[in-house]
Design a protein around this nucleic acid. Sequence first.
DNA 1: GCCAAGATAAACT
DNA 2: GTTTATCTTGGCA
Length: 209
Amino acid sequence: MTFPIDQAKRLPPAFYQNHTANVAQDLIGKAIAHRVRQTWVGGVIVETEAYLHSGDPASHSARGKTASNASMFDRPGVMYVYPIHAKHCLNAVTEDTGIGAAVLIRAIEPLWGLEMMCERRGLMGELRGHTERRRLTTGPAMLCQALGIDRRDDGRCFVTDPDLGFFDLGPPQKRRIVATPRIGISKAQHRKLRFIDADSKFLSRPYRD
DNA sequence: GCCAAGATAAACT
DNA sequence: GTTTATCTTGGCA
């Protein structure tokens, strides 16, 4: 399948200029894609987390701007890539320039460039069903690797970069969007700032009521 | 300069 | 469900 770039609408700057929790929720069902040498790789977002600019000790911005989190304080729509445990996580800056708010993309349903994803993830010919495809992008570090994004891509922009973006694929489908506590953090664990498409088979962990 | 911690994921039992 | 490989960052000496 080729990426329907001509039919897809790139999300405008205004999309990011809302409360971070709303942006995180609205990104469920949108597409993310990255093009390297003519090949678009990406899929549909099924899991996100909001990291707020104030009152959120779990956010990287909680202790102010440093050299490593600087792009989290850049313009809305800029990509913040952070290394962790020898891997990477990918965020989109939200709200306003200089405040330090972002949405972490945690999982996508892979749709375009599956062979490229397999190659980058070190998997061979594992495209048969969704159980195999789950090994591609069902975690923030996995999807970064599958999309070919690392710390060098920190600071690129989802709005202006011709090879990187979020896209609206058209009429929204019926989705059961659920808010849950965020994963893997030690502070502010009670806050429900993780948003999922509850019926997706591509969550980092399956949802049950 | 040293060292503990971390928005993880794979390999275990 | 639990353990562990792996390495950048930032706080402190």
